[in-house]
């Protein structure tokens, strides 16, 4: 498993105050660096934030993870699930910085995104706080392991 990320009890408002829709599940301060494309990030030694598009190869970032402060994974349409794999790949590679889902991020996909390692969300349309809370509290357990630290049912059965 990738190192577990630090979770706070709930979402925090962005310290920079530039986005009221930002949900964070981290204790550190939100990164405010401008995200560049994967190609640009790999070329620029001083870039600190990167945005992954669905067709990008997330593994190109792995040699550079030490300097990454923020990874944004873009969901141009919520039905395009490539970003879930990109997130897990980065967590599996040991990335423990902020991993932010941006774009068409909806409440009904939030729980799966959390499981794949996302710990912040910047949706195009703001989410209802009550719906978010309900969505993230929905599942009593999980069947399989992912990038979060939840213990799968099949492990609990034989603990």
């Amino acid at each position: 498993m990738a190192d577990p990320v630090t979770h706070s009890d709930g979402p925090q408002s962005d310290g920079q105050g530039h986005n009221s829709g930002l949900l964070r599940y981290r204790d550190d301060k939100a990164a405010s660096h401008a995200a560049v494309t994967v190609d640009a990030f790999v070329d620029q030694d001083d870039a600190l934030a990167v945005r992954i598009e669905p067709g990008d190869e997330a593994r190109e970032l792995i040699p550079h993870l030490a300097r990454v402060k923020l990874v944004e994974v873009n969901f141009p349409a919520f039905g395009d699930g490539r970003g879930y794999s990109a997130a897990r790949i980065l967590r599996e590679a040991g990335y423990d910085g902020e991993l932010r889902a941006v774009g068409d991020v909806l409440v009904d996909q939030l729980a799966y995104m959390r499981r794949c390692g996302f710990d912040s969300f910047d949706p195009d349309a703001p989410l209802d706080a009550g719906d978010v809370e309900a969505a993230l509290a929905r599942w009593p357990d999980v069947y399989q392991s992912a990038a979060d630290d939840r213990t799968p049912i099949w492990t609990k059965r034989h603990a």
Partner: peptide, 13 residues
């Protein structure tokens, strides 16, 4: 079945 139920990475294939 268990593995694939609510699999978080593979819900939007």
């Amino acid at each position: 079945r268990q593995w694939s139920s609510f699999h978080p990475e593979f819900a939007y294939l």
